[in-house]
């Protein structure tokens, strides 16, 4: 399960950037690069190799006690060659991960990086406007991090006036009966089986842990 995919681009990429290594992949060519060289590699791929389309900027949280914990991932597409390439870089700091911005290469990176910052907490250095994009300004957590429970963490509503008026809060969502996750391994009869919550750490029978 450590397959790699190489093509002409990765070969010449490794010749040009000796620190780049092939990354495990089952579909497209993929490389790991040091985070300091990421922008140079992406710029080279864009200008010299024709990977002109930034498909996605995202990140991986490997787990709380793993180091390096966060990996930023860029997916590029060449509209001339019709091929993809994946570039990944481990972020140096596990508590406060930082990655370089690529907004100067692809303006489309702006909102992708804001989303990655919002949900994973990766700070993109040099980003022109690194605000949250999905959660509201002032939300204290990064919800796609591994330590964040699916149900959520109790916090205040974004609007203080409305919060006072309604006494409503952002609450941890009840997990019993949802979200709807059913086994896909075939041992369960789908017509009988009620989809179960994956996270049953608390539900209507087990109290919520403090």
């Amino acid at each position: 399960m450590s397959e790699t995919v190489a093509d002409d681009t990765t070969t010449s990429l490794q010749a040009k950037f000796p620190s780049a290594t092939l990354r495990e992949s089952l579909d497209h060519p993929a490389v790991n690069v040091p985070v300091g060289e990421a922008v140079a590699v992406l710029e080279w791929l864009k200008d010299e190799q024709g990977y002109d389309f930034l498909v996605d900027v995202t990140a991986v949280d490997w787990a709380e006690n793993v180091s390096p914990r966060f990996t930023t991932v860029w997916h590029l597409y060449s509209t001339a060659k019709h091929t993809y390439i994946r570039v990944a870089a481990d972020c140096a700091d596990d508590a406060d991960p930082v990655a370089p911005t690529v907004t100067q290469l692809w303006p489309a990176a702006d909102w992708h990086e804001r989303e990655t910052f919002d949900l994973m907490g990766i700070k993109f250095e040099g980003h022109p406007d690194l605000r949250r994009i999905l959660m509201w300004d002032g939300y204290p957590h990064h919800p796609l991090r591994k330590e964040f429970p699916l149900a959520g963490i109790e916090t205040e509503l974004p609007d203080i006036e409305v919060a006072e008026e309604t006494e409503a809060k952002v609450i941890a969502a009840p997990m019993m009966g949802g979200p709807f996750v059913a086994s896909n391994k075939g041992e369960m009869n789908m017509t009988d089986a009620e989809p179960r919550a994956k996270d049953e750490s608390w539900n209507e029978k087990l109290p919520k842990p403090e």
């Binding site: 964040f148 409305v162 409503a168 979200p179």
Partner: peptide, 18 residues
């Protein structure tokens, strides 16, 4: 009731605010 969205982002029923 929040429906199938039992998640950190979704209000669990609009009767919490109106």
């Amino acid at each position: 009731s929040g429906g199938m969205y039992r998640s950190y982002a979704t209000l669990q029923g609009v009767d919490r605010i109106v």
